[in-house]
Structure formats: C-alpha cells, structure tokens
Simulated scan of single mutants.
Amino acid sequence: MDIIGRGFLAGHLTAIADDHQEVVIAAAGVSAAQHTSQSAFRRETALVRELLGRCERSGEKLVFFSTASSGIYARPGRPGTEDGPVFPATAYGRHKYGLEQEVASSSADFLILRLGHVVGHDQPPHQLLPALADQVRSGRVQIFPGARRDLIDVRDVVSIVDALLASGAGRTTVNVASGCSTPIEKIIEHIQDRLGIAAEWAYSGPTVTQEICIAKLRHLVPSVDAMGFGPGYYRGVLDRYLPPGPVGGPAAVSP
C-alpha cells in the first residue's frame, strides 16, 4: 500500500500498509469541513488527478476519502445513502463531491469512502474533538441547536478500510460512520464531564442534520456489528481520547 500523505489518517493507516499491495491511499487532501481555500482545493484536485492517472496506467486501486458530513448530506428526512441524491451545503462538500465524480468516472479501480467525524490520537486542532475540547477548556462553547455529529473511532476506520480492501470491494462508494448521529449538546456535556469543566454555552442560529445510512457498510463489512455502533458508542470514543478531569466532574452544565 502506498499512502500519500503524512497527516492524522495517514499515520493511523500505516498499521495496515504492508497488508495490501496495488493500493494507493490518497490521504493528503483537505480535511477541514469549514475549509474554503481555493488554493487548497486546487492542490487536492491536482493530486487526485495525478493519482488517478497513475492508477489507470498501473492497475492499482485508489482509495479516496470524502465526507459524510453535512457538506454532502444536508437534507434531513431520511438517512443519506451512497446511491441517493446529495445536496452539498458547503464549499468543502461541493469540492469533495466534485472529486468523487472525477474518481468514479475514471477507468481506475477505486474506493470512495465518505467518512463521519473521525476521532483519535494526534488529531490536528481544527478537527471536531480537539476543537470542542479547546472551547470547553476556554470556558465558552458555541452551540448550534439541531446540530448532530456521527463520531467514529479512527481504530474502527482503519479496521473497516482493511476489511474493505481484503474483500476486494471496488468501484464503489461507502459511508464509513457509526450510523448514530448524536446531538452536539450531548457531546459537549460528555466532554465537560470528562474534563471536569463547566463552560458557558453561547447559542447561534439553529441548524439541521441528515443522518448517515450504513446499511451498505454493514453488508460489505459484517464485522462492524462487533464494533459497538449504537446510541452510546460516542461516549466510549470520547472517553478513549480525552484525559479525565478532576474527580467529581464539573459543578454544573450550562443550560
């Protein structure tokens, strides 16, 4: 496996790098959902096109990481599916979806993996858990009522990528998430409890979240049934990657 990139996800994927030949992992792209830099988008587009050309010539499989966030799934009502309509709500989502279409229209073999909010050691500070934990530590958290986040442990992501590649799955798109989106308020409450800090909550305008369907993932990787995905899964993920605070936790949770 040739891993292109040196960031958070690339670092964790090195654990399976020796297990899959003829696979190229594009793990050097834009990873911030709030990203709007056209220069960064252009760099990722150029990289993906270069890797597609390589894979078309060599017969290698390209693994491209997209997003299952509201950047892609932005119409609530029914969970977002890989073969259903998408309505990208952000510049980041439109960029990722455009690259998905380029990958899917190429002659190369590929896996497009739409990721939930991945959590793990050595994350950059702009990603969800480090950013929320920093807000809590600062004493003030910005809340968007209605926002929900589907958290998934990076260790489970690596296991899923490993299983998908071992199965021979190709020329397909797969949601890689827990399938359970948690209200942001519950996530912040658990972070506060874990850190032993009660932050002030500042409310912004309401937002909406579309759930993520993982039926295809469960079909392709039956072992996900043993990963503990469900309504309480996020608590274990947060506990694994947040240091415990003072005994007794915060005095109160801001309303």
Results as ranks from 00 to 15, higher is better:
88 P>L: 07
221 V>R: 07
160 I>H: 08
40 A>V: 14
165 L>E: 03
211 E>N: 06
72 I>F: 15
71 G>E: 04
138 S>Y: 11
94 R>D: 14
213 C>A: 11
39 S>V: 15
70 S>V: 11
151 L>S: 01
15 A>Y: 01
11 G>Q: 05
43 R>C: 01
127 Q>G: 03
181 S>N: 11
244 P>G: 13
67 T>R: 03
104 A>F: 07
128 L>G: 01
63 V>Q: 06
70 S>M: 07
99 L>N: 05
90 T>I: 15
149 R>M: 11
232 G>Y: 06
245 G>S: 09
62 L>T: 00
162 D>E: 05
140 R>E: 13
220 L>Q: 01
39 S>Y: 10
162 D>T: 07
116 G>T: 03
148 R>K: 15
104 A>D: 07
62 L>R: 03
46 A>R: 15
56 E>Y: 05
184 I>L: 15
89 A>P: 02
18 D>A: 15
98 G>W: 06
64 F>P: 03
237 V>S: 02
3 I>C: 10
171 R>C: 03
31 S>P: 04
211 E>R: 06
78 R>E: 14
51 L>V: 01
89 A>D: 08
12 H>N: 08
36 T>Y: 06
56 E>A: 04
124 P>D: 09
4 I>T: 02
173 T>V: 13
8 F>K: 04
214 I>R: 12
97 Y>G: 05
54 R>M: 12
111 L>G: 10
74 A>F: 06
53 G>I: 02
149 R>L: 09
183 P>R: 01
124 P>F: 05
99 L>E: 09
66 S>R: 07
36 T>V: 14
6 R>S: 12
251 A>H: 12
251 A>N: 06
3 I>L: 10
127 Q>D: 05
135 Q>E: 09
87 F>K: 12
177 A>S: 10
248 G>Y: 08
216 K>N: 14
42 R>G: 12
242 L>D: 03
42 R>Q: 15
56 E>R: 01
76 P>E: 07
76 P>A: 13
94 R>E: 15
180 C>A: 12
234 Y>L: 04
128 L>D: 00
20 H>V: 08
199 A>V: 00
94 R>W: 11
25 I>C: 01
63 V>R: 08
50 E>I: 01
171 R>H: 06
212 I>M: 00
132 L>R: 11
242 L>Y: 07
128 L>A: 06
147 A>I: 04
251 A>G: 14
51 L>D: 00
223 S>Q: 12
13 L>D: 10
68 A>P: 05
106 S>R: 08
218 R>F: 04
124 P>H: 00
107 S>R: 15
22 E>K: 13
60 E>Q: 15
103 V>P: 01
111 L>K: 01
94 R>G: 13
27 A>H: 08
232 G>A: 10
252 A>Q: 08
115 L>E: 00
181 S>Y: 02
56 E>C: 03
120 G>W: 00
36 T>H: 14
222 P>A: 04
53 G>P: 07
68 A>G: 12
197 I>Q: 00
158 V>S: 09
98 G>A: 14
10 A>K: 02
81 T>A: 15
34 Q>R: 11
90 T>P: 04
152 I>P: 02
94 R>T: 04
189 E>F: 08
235 R>P: 02
130 P>F: 13
114 R>M: 08
133 A>C: 03
83 D>P: 03
62 L>F: 12
214 I>W: 02
106 S>H: 09
197 I>F: 00
